[in-house]
Design a protein around this nucleic acid. Structure first.
Length: 811
DNA sequence: ATCCTCCCCTAC
DNA sequence: TAAGGTAGGGGAGGAT
């Protein structure tokens, strides 16, 4: 989903369309100069780019409502947890981020499945389900086993054929992107609105609008002809087109459509990089090669034919249009998408590059934005790609920085060597709210910090990670900005403040303890000496992440350290047990078996050098006894009380809260990134004991994070020499791989069913959708393809096929 | 030279 | 009413 200029550039005002051109131009000018054109600039610099912004007054409606204590208690940060939950549930940007994370997991999971199928077929997994040591086979002599899908193509022994092959092996990258995604999905069930100008925003109803500061997140092409764009407020849109129709967000639907898209793309691609809920990059080299070899000269442009086939499938599956940019690398494929839109595909060839880009601006390139363009203009005097392509590399580097300069230098020459990335390890986790932050006093601010800490901690837990470093981000109202900014409950012009500090549990290890995080965040906030009334935004980011269960603590050590990772579980949740004087315990590590429990306790290393920012925590003075066994809801606990507790007791309390949290995780709100969408509805899940296809799914925790050879790449390498007849194994797609794997050893596919354990005796969670072979056949689903899909996509495939069998194709 | 920290920038 | 989140890349400049 693009909320940026580039997506909309070609669809500006069509003179004579509903309004005459002159009038539209004048309106647009007014709106561009409207203080709310940029809905609510965050910095002084941004504000100066908006003529008249500094003089704008506070939002009157907001100012009025803020008078009401009732309103404040239910619609601002003063409401604490309820506010946070409600906000995230309705934040489109939050959903965007969450979805992206989920989709990345989904893709990585599919790759693992493909790899496991491959391993099974190669006998890496013995029939009883024990996985043998997973050293993958060395490939051909020059492959080296080092990397990488695409990077190391197996060389054909015959020299004469090499060139021919090379030509045929050209990489084909496609950038697949839904057209105005939110609106399109919303119009599926509102066909009567399709010819009207329609936007998606929170503010609904014909009456709402004239003064609404609600932000438009997506506008259909009819609306765009009036000059309406994503990012505008509804009131601006109403000025451009009073009759514009608003439709609400439908987050669950977006996600379902996304799964449909991803299902189709995974089946037809060699490799896939999740970009966002409505967008993905795929390598389809083998698919394109295949249709061009099958159909010989039938296709003038096989890549384009392939893209149109994909577009058709997506249209049939979702009822929405995607556009597809095609080229031989990522940068160019993305560029091509602009030309493909709407509802089309475009193949950008190297030969056409120059004339395609001469008149484009730098910020039409993905990764280059306004700042780069302004910098280029200021330091080089030009900002079009045509002009910039004349500059020597050194000049670009001097003006824009080394990496940026080189990237640009290469880009304008059509060069982009990046590979698709689908399994990079997470480097940070954060939670941030810059909307509706209105504290009345210190207590509210403190309570909020602890609640936000719970939120980040939950996210960290859900990916089974711990952190060693924390950054507090504050947005503080600029003294000149109105107390209520123009945008309803917005942040207005602010100064931003960042503070970083070490984050350690009492034992010196990385942590995901919400109380440790909250304590640290609160101390940092206090150290910033900010009037809580002036706060307009708060964020907590955690970095220096480590996998839970290992404390490969920074630097040397110390095999023993690892042993102490496991702390003896106390019998029951006995808070009093904490004062036995043992080492303060972090939460116990359920991943390890109790029998491995060591009887060793190391002293936690000194932390003194690690604390960077703040004053020492208040000395615990009270309440070492009398901790209630029945804890109130965490949001009701006075954080200042918790703060006073000794660390070990806090740790115990924290453990209990976390236990509760994980219990409630299953029915927590849908944005919890713990598990991707489950489409499970009893009717979909059917077990047939006779003949079932069932495959495991690793938990994210088990996923290796090395990127030395992605799963798909390794499969390809393992297939190496023998597979290389007509289709390069490296380019074999999931479909082919799964097929080959299954045909090589059909029985082991089924035997793998209950192989619950992986290499190191750790229990491996697994899940899959059971279905009979017979039904798969009757539904026209290829069992091997089905097997390679992650469970979510299995569900998606299955329910769709069943639906279509019963009711015919929708749409 | 190479790293780290504290930003800014970009994308969806 | 309205829901301005989040993660990663990279540059500047200081520490090592």
């Amino acid at each position: 989903m693009k909320h940026s200029r580039t997506d909309e550039t070609d669809e500006q005002i069509a003179p004579g369309d509903a309004l005459d051109g002159e009038r539209v131009s004048k309106l647009r000018k007014d709106i561009i100069e409207d203080p709310l054109f940029v809905t609510d600039p965050a910095t002084k610099e941004d504000a100066t780019r908006v003529p008249g912004y500094a003089s704008s007054k506070s939002n009157e409606a907001a100012a009025r409502m803020m008078q009401s204590a009732e309103f404040r208690a239910s619609h601002t940060s003063a409401a604490g947890n309820n506010f946070i939950d409600g906000f995230y549930k309705n934040s489109r940007l939050h959903h965007l981020s969450t979805w992206k994370n989920e989709l990345k997991l989904l893709v990585a999971e599919a790759q693992e499945r493909a790899e496991r199928l491959k391993n099974i077929s190669d006998g890496f997994v013995s029939p009883d389900g024990e996985e043998s040591v997973s050293v993958h086979k060395p490939v051909s002599s020059d492959g080296g086993g080092v990397s990488m899908r695409g990077a190391v193509l197996p060389k054909s022994p015959s020299k004469g054929k090499v060139r021919l092959q090379d030509e045929k092996l050209e990489t084909v990258i496609m950038h697949v992107d839904f057209d105005c995604f939110f609106v399109s999905v919303g119009l599926i069930d509102r066909p009567q609105l399709r010819e009207q100008p329609v936007v998606v925003c929170h503010s609904q109803g014909a009456q709402g609008g004239a003064n609404s500061t609600s932000e438009i997140s997506s506008a259909n092409y009819v609306a765009r002809k009036f000059g309406i764009k994503a990012g505008m407020s509804l009131q601006q849109a109403r000025k451009l087109c009073p009759s514009v129709v608003t439709i609400p967000y439908e987050f669950e639907k977006y996600k379902q459509m996304s799964l449909k898209l991803y299902t189709i793309l995974m089946i037809h691609s060699d490799d896939l990089q999740a970009v966002s809920v409505d967008e993905a990059l795929i390598d389809v080299s083998s698919g394109v090669r295949q249709i061009s070899s099958e159909a010989e000269d039938r296709y003038h442009d096989p890549a384009k034919a392939f893209a149109e086939m994909l577009r058709k499938k997506v249209r049939e599956s979702t009822g929405c249009e995607v556009s597809i940019g095609i080229s031989h690398n990522i940068m160019l494929a993305r560029l091509a998408t602009g030309k493909a839109k709407p509802a089309g595909s475009f193949h950008l060839r190297h030969a056409d590059l120059q004339k395609f880009i001469v008149h484009m601006q730098v910020d039409d390139l993905h990764g280059f934005g306004r700042a780069t363009r302004e910098k280029a203009l200021e330091r080089l005097g030009v900002s079009t790609l045509g002009e910039l392509s004349k500059k020597p590399k050194s000049v670009l580097c001097d003006a824009l920085g080394k990496t940026t300069g080189e990237t640009l230098y290469n880009a304008v020459r059509g060069v982009d060597n990046r590979k698709l990335e689908s399994d990079k390890p997470r480097k940070s986790v954060s939670a941030e709210i810059n909307y509706g932050i209105r504290f009345e006093d210190t207590d509210q601010a403190r309570a909020f910090m602890f609640q936000l800490s719970e939120e980040v901690a939950r996210r960290l837990d859900s990916i089974e990670m711990r952190a060693r470093s924390i950054t507090l981000k504050l947005m503080i109202r600029d003294p000149n900005a109105p107390v209520e900014p123009p945008k309803f409950m917005g942040h207005g012009v602010c100064t931003v403040m960042n503070k970083q500090a070490a984050l350690n549990a009492s034992n010196g290890r990385a942590t995901s303890d919400p109380l440790v995080i909250g304590q640290q965040a609160w101390l940092m906030l206090k150290a910033c000496n900010v009037d809580p009334k002036e706060l307009r935004g708060v964020g907590i980011q955690l970095q220096k992440l480590e996998k839970a269960g290992f404390s490969a603590s920074s630097g040397s050590e110390k095999a023993q350290r690892k042993l102490t990772d496991f702390n003896p579980p106390k019998p029951g949740v006995d808070v009093g047990g904490a004062d036995e004087g043992g080492a303060p315990s972090e939460k116990s590590d359920t991943a390890q078996s109790p029998s491995a429990m060591p009887n060793i306790t190391l002293q936690p290393p000194s932390q003194e050098g690690d604390i960077q920012i703040v004053e020492a925590p208040a000395t615990p003075t009270v309440l070492t006894e009398n901790i209630p066994l029945i804890l109130p809801s965490l949001s009701q606990v006075d954080p200042s009380t918790l703060e006073e507790l000794p660390e070990d007791i806090r740790s115990e309390i924290s453990k209990e809260y976390r236990r509760r949290r994980s219990e409630s995780l299953t029915h927590s709100r849908s944005t919890t990134p713990a598990r991707p969408l489950s489409l499970t509805d009893g009717s979909v899940l059917r077990v047939d004991d006779e003949e079932e296809v069932l495959f495991q799914k690793d938990t994210p925790a088990k996923r290796k994070t090395t990127n030395k050879g992605t799963p798909l790449g390794r499969i390809a390498q393992a297939l190496g020499p023998k597979g290389s007849s007509s289709i390069s194994p490296l380019k074999m797609n999931i479909f082919e791989r799964a097929k080959l794997a299954a045909s090589t050893s059909k029985s082991s596919v089924q035997h793998s069913v209950n192989s619950g354990s992986g290499g190191k005796g750790q229990p491996k969670k697994s899940s899959s959708v059971k279905v009979s072979m017979e039904e798969l056949r009757s539904l026209g689903i290829d069992a091997q393809v089905y097997a390679a899909l992650p469970v979510d996509l299995q569900l998606e495939q299955l329910s769709r096929a069943r639906f279509e069998r019963s009711f015919g194709k929708s749409n």
